[in-house]
Design a protein around this nucleic acid. Structure first.
Lengths: 229, 229
DNA sequence: GGATCTATGACAGTTGCGTGACAAATCAGC
DNA sequence: GCTGATTTGTCACGCAACTGTCATAGATCC
């Protein structure tokens, strides 16, 4: 069954949504705060997340950001605010759709279905010859095409940088030690680990908006590097 | 450049949309009727299609159906009608999103970007690329990701602290003596057992809500430490 | 109340990381 | 092949963060 996580602090609205979703045949779970929702999603990932923007503690935008960091789950914002600014900000943060309260349950489920259909289909070329693309926020990597882009703009990376990036992307969210990277990217059994630093540094100059404060290609001191959403 | 086809019979609205889209860096083309739009799309496919519902001749719903028959192009409906029925019908017919006039251009483009991102990413991560997490109440440890979080909020721990925590987490609920920890975390055969205390203390500062009254990382006097739920 | 075990703060030495400079190697265009 | 441009690997330096030691204070047991 399709599972939906509803992150909404207002008990009545949350309950109403949960009941309505269950009526529609979804397996719905509620969370009253962003923190609770994030935890629930980590432990037992739902297929969709609905999130309110105004939450106590961690707000909706941050919640979306956190969800997107380690998950591709479709996120639909359900908010009382219909300001263009909020809508744009939420979508940019990683939300897939934005509905203004009060929401009609039929519309909501229709939108969930549309979202699923779109995600399955992809677009551009026909499904068969579509190049797989790994996405990390505004960063996109297509290993087959040998292309990297940030926010739709192509980024020129060298071969070594590209291999390094692919290796990290393949194990997205996981730490790779310098040794592992040397092994996999360069084929060295032993070698100077600083070499990895240098290339990571160069890569960051190209793919990170603020290379000094990397958001995707992060260092885990003493452990290695990892690529995250 | 990204091309957008706008199918809208009202000249003023169509023109306004075209201009606004071009301002935003899109390559926008207009069509006044469904037939004209379909022809244009067949001849020179755009990356997105915006379509009005109330069109002379072939109406919007049918237009969507026709578009969908031979194309995966993302379709966004832009309509004056905000009736749930219409919205659901349009989405079911194959539209990807539905905006009610008047539309804010910023919102429109944000939605186009969201759509593109989703289509590229797809979803439904396979279980294999989900990073495993060990949970202890609100405390979460992901050895692979090199991450620790409390209540969904990431906590920065050092390498030694991380190793220590993982060691304890691996044997959750069991006491580990200082000797065992020294052995496993530091590789020391002999060494000052106080060292363990110091690191446990530092770890508690970071992961325990009230470090003086630890709930998870507890001391067993004379025996050692253990991590519990 | 004394003995033993544990917590914690301060501190200096060490380690790890990012970066710029540079030379060797490789590539592209002719 | 030649030449200039790009890419790659090496090195050294400096900063920031981490580690281990110690001393002292506190807790616990009998």
């Amino acid at each position: 069954m399709t599972a939906v996580l509803v992150i909404e602090d207002d008990d009545r609205i949350r309950l109403a949504l949960l009941l309505a979703l269950e009526d529609e045949g979804y397996d719905a779970v509620g969370a009253a705060t962003a923190e609770e929702g994030l935890r629930a999603q980590r432990r037992d990932p739902a297929d969709y997340v609905l999130v309110d923007l105004m939450l106590p503690g961690l707000d909706g935008f941050e919640c979306i950001g956190q969800l997107r960091r380690d998950d591709d789950v479709p996120i639909v914002v359900i908010s009382a605010r219909d300001d263009t600014h909020d809508i744009v900000a939420a979508l940019e943060a990683g939300a897939d759709d934005y509905l203004v309260k009060p929401v009609a349950i039929k519309e909501l489920t229709a939108r969930l279905r549309a979202l699923r259909r779109r995600a399955r289909t992809g677009f551009g070329e026909s499904a068969s010859d579509r190049v797989p693309v790994l996405a990390f926020g505004e960063l996109e990597i297509s290993p087959d095409a040998g292309e990297v882009s940030r926010g739709g703009q192509p980024v020129a990376v060298t071969r070594t940088e590209f291999r390094l990036l692919c290796e990290l992307a393949e194990h997205a969210g996981r730490v790779l030690s310098r040794q592992q990277l040397l092994q996999r990217v360069w084929g060295y059994d032993i070698g100077d680990e600083r070499l990895v630093d240098v290339h990571v540094g160069r890569l960051r100059q190209k793919i990170e908006p603020d290379p000094t404060n990397p958001r995707h290609l992060v260092t885990l001191r003493g452990l290695g590097y990892k690529l995250q959403r």
